[in-house]
């Protein structure tokens, strides 16, 4: 089976390494484009929405801190992608922001996604406990070919 574009979710941790290696191999064999992406989780303001006592400054300092953490993780993801895919000419990496579940599902249904390759524990480094069930939600809603790695 030939693909025009292999899309892989990368988070800079071991959770995405196997999926990334597979996506790179698939892109090599199919001689197609490889797209990697990381998602900066935009769900944190809502996640701490129950906290009504923090001063505006303390709340903002916390959100800035979490954002900075995720930016570092995004850079680690970019490095992981560049190292694994260095011999693929048609490659690109993007950093997206928003709800990881919504963005992953959108990628799994995008017309230009030949195949989406994802590790089951993807984006758990971003923290929120509900991200543990990302792959389950993805399987239920993906319409494009999808490969999940443990």
């Amino acid at each position: 089976m030939e693909f025009k574009n292999i899309v892989v979710a990368v988070d800079g941790s071991e959770a995405s390494q196997e999926a990334l290696n597979h996506a790179v191999e698939l892109a090599r064999q199919s001689k197609c484009a490889l797209t990697g992406f990381f998602i900066i989780d935009g769900g944190w303001p809502d996640f701490i929405g129950n906290d009504w006592q923090s001063s505006k400054g303390a709340r903002q300092e916390f959100l800035d801190y979490i954002f900075k953490e995720q930016e570092s993780q995004a850079e680690a993801a970019r490095m992981q992608f560049e190292i694994a895919a260095e011999d693929i000419n048609d490659r690109r990496f993007s950093i997206l922001a928003g709800d990881p579940a919504e963005i992953l599902i959108a990628q799994a249904n995008a017309a230009d996604t030949g195949m989406l390759v994802v590790g089951q524990r993807i984006f758990q480094v971003s923290g929120r406990p509900s991200l543990r069930s990302l792959s389950k939600r993805l399987v239920a809603k993906a319409t494009r070919p999808l490969t999940l790695f443990p």
């Binding site: 989780d41 701490i48 916390f62 480094v125 971003s126 406990p129």
Partner: peptide, 21 residues
């Protein structure tokens, strides 16, 4: 609770997953 977790996290270099859990 959450207010104290929010106030403490930056000062102890907490990872996002630690704070979230």
């Amino acid at each position: 609770g959450v207010t104290a977790a929010v106030a403490t996290s930056p000062g102890v270099e907490a990872k996002a997953s630690h704070v979230a859990y």
